[in-house]
Amino acid sequence: MTTSVSAASAPSTAHSRGENRLGRIAFYIVCTALAALFLFPIVWTAISSVKPPPEASAVPPTFLPSRLDLGNFVKLNEYGRGVWNYVGNSAGTAVMTVIGATLLSTLAGYGFSRFQFRGKGLLFVMILMTLMIPFQSILIPLFLILTGLKLQNTLFGLALVYITFQLPFGVFIMRNSFDAVPREIEEAALLDGCSSLSMLYRVMLNIVRPGIITVGIYAFLNSWNEFLAALIFMTKETSFTLPILLTSVRSGYYGSIDWGALQAGLIVTIAPCILIFLLLQRYYISGLTGGATKG
C-alpha cells in the first residue's frame, strides 16, 4: 500500500486563484513552523552531543558548539563496561527478535493462509487475541518463568519474550501477505513437484518479501526501544540494554549528572531507529495502515 495522496482525498479549500495562492503560502509557513517544532528536540540533542563536555552541561545552555568534540561520547564510554557492550546487548537482542519474529510469522502466516487443519480458526484467534491483552499484565509470571529457565539477564531470554509480543502483528501481516498471492503460482509449482516447504522457500518467499520486511522493522524497533520488560528482566549491569543504560547515565555517578554523556547516549540510541525508518519508511507505514484499515 502506498501513502500517496490523491488530489481530492480531502475537501479542497480552493475557490479562486488568488485565494489559492495565499492559502498555499499559509500552508507552507504553518507546516514549516510545525516541522521545526517536531525536529527541534532531535536536532538539539545532535548539536549538543558534539559540543565539548563543559559546553554540553553549560548553564544557561549555549547555542552552537564552539568546536566539534567527541568528548561526550568518550565519557559515555566510561559508564559500566563501555558503550559497545550495551550497543551489543541491544543489537544482539534486536537481531534475535527480528530473526525469530520473521521466521515464526512467515511460517505461521503460510500455514494459516494455505492449509486446512483442525483447530485452525481457534489457533489463529488465540494468537491475535494476545494483541488485546497488554503484556504489562503478564510480566510477573514471565519474570518467574525466565528465572526458572535460568534465562534471566540473558539476551536470549529477553528475545524470546520480545518475539512472542511481536507474533500477533507478524502473523496477521504475513497471513494477509500470503492471502494476496494468486493460487495459480502455487499450482504451477506443485505440478513441478515442489513440496510445501520448498515451495515456501523457492516460490513464495520472494513474493511476500515486503511483508517480511515490515514484520522485521517492527520487531527491530520494538525490541530496540522496549523499556519495562528490559528493566525487569535485565537486572545485572552488564546485561542492560541501551534504554536501561541511559537511565543509569541519567542518575549519574556520585550524584552529579553528566548531561553530555546523556546526550551522546541518546544519539547512539535514537540514530539507528531514525535511519531504519527513513530507509524503509514505505514498509513501516504499510504495516500501520494495513493493520488500521483491516483490523
Binding site: 515464526l104 505461521a108 500455514g111 494459516f112 492449509f115 489457533l123 488465540m126 512472542t164 507474533l167
Partner: peptide, 14 residues
C-alpha cells in the same frame, strides 16, 4: 498435518 507443522512454532511461543 503440514499446516499444523507450519503454525506450531508460533503457537508454542504464544
Amino acid at each position: 498435518s503440514a499446516g499444523l507443522f507450519f503454525v506450531l512454532p508460533a503457537v508454542s511461543f504464544t
